[in-house]
């Protein structure tokens, strides 16, 4: 070590040329990758808005769907209502059950045999194709009740959501520091109390994100809904009647060769994107109200 009185050069100029070039290249490559990822996203949003906005007017939200693919006009109310009913019912079934399951796995079961089995089953369930889940519900519910219904579709979607909610919520619960659980226990709190008042609030925003992702995926599912809910053209809030959803309308209208039907498909796509986005933002707002800030 030699010591000099001269101040060392701390500017970027003191770096070697090779290093500066590598730095520039890496930064450029990352920017390019970001751009490549953003392009498809931007195009999707652009096309959905450009093509879908035209058909959306007041009647879109209030009128029944026209039954003729060639004819323009009509609305999309039945599918909007159907999407809300079916996805809402699925979320009400899957999220509480899924979060409870995650609590069992992370706070109670840990590495016990039962917990390991549940974890493996959830992983297997995640891999089941959605159409297979639809057929399963078709066989066990639709054939038994002899009727397609929003409820059957909700069950199929709930089965698809459940493993996703369980696994994502468990990951989030795992991130809650053990020191908090110990601090709570040292004050004489029982485990359920610790879970309810310390662990869950700390994990709330993460659990909400995971659940919203599951809802968004479910709202866009088409195949299991087609076989379980049927295809209707007038709106019903009843869970126990055949129903229709936006995803089904996108599918059935887009596969028609007629321009009015294709316009309807785009409009339905825009509506679906808007609904999912609205609920995601709402859920974020609500959970940030309850969740405790880190700082």
């Amino acid at each position: 070590m030699t010591t000099t009185d001269r101040a060392p050069d701390l500017t970027r100029r003191s770096l070697g040329t090779g290093r500066r070039v590598r730095n520039g290249l890496a930064t450029g490559a990352i920017a390019l990758a970001l751009l490549l990822a953003v392009i498809p996203l931007g195009l999707v949003v652009y096309y959905v808005i450009a093509k879908g906005a035209g058909v959306i007017d007041g009647a879109w939200f209030t009128e029944d769907i026209v039954n003729r693919a060639r004819r323009a006009g009509g609305g999309m109310q039945p599918a909007i209502v159907g999407t809300l009913v079916v996805t809402g019912a699925a979320a009400l079934m899957a999220i509480p059950l899924g979060v409870l399951g995650a609590i069992y796995l992370n706070e109670y079961g840990k590495q016990r045999p039962l917990a390991r089995i549940v974890r493996t089953m959830a992983d297997v369930m995640t891999g089941v194709p959605s159409i297979v889940m639809g057929l399963f519900i078709y066989v066990t519910v639709v054939l038994v009740t002899k009727s397609q219904s929003g409820f059957a579709a909700a069950l199929a979607l709930a089965c698809l959501m459940l493993p996703v909610v369980i696994r994502s919520a468990e990951e989030i619960l795992r991130l809650v520091p053990d020191e908090l659980r110990q601090a709570s226990a040292a004050l004489g709190a029982r485990r359920w109390r610790t879970t309810l008042t310390v662990v869950l609030p700390a994990a709330l925003s993460g659990i909400t994100s995971g659940s919203m992702l599951a809802i968004a995926r479910a709202a866009g599912e088409t195949a299991p809904v087609v076989v379980t809910a049927g295809l209707t053209f007038s709106s019903t809030w009843s869970l126990f009647k055949p129903n229709t959803t936006l995803s089904m309308q996108i599918f059935s209208n887009a596969s028609q060769p007629f321009a009015p039907a294709q316009d309807r498909a785009w409009g339905a796509a825009l509506t679906l994107v808007a609904i999912v986005l609205t609920f995601t933002v709402l859920a974020r707002l609500i959970s940030s109200r309850f969740a405790i800030k880190e700082r």
Binding site: E179, L180, Q182, A183, S184, A186, L187, I292
Partner: peptide, 14 residues
């Protein structure tokens, strides 16, 4: 509840 504990790392609840 009778024998409390303070930990090495400060661990206030969030």
């Amino acid at each position: 509840r009778h024998i409390g504990m303070v930990f090495q790392k400060p661990n206030p609840f969030p």
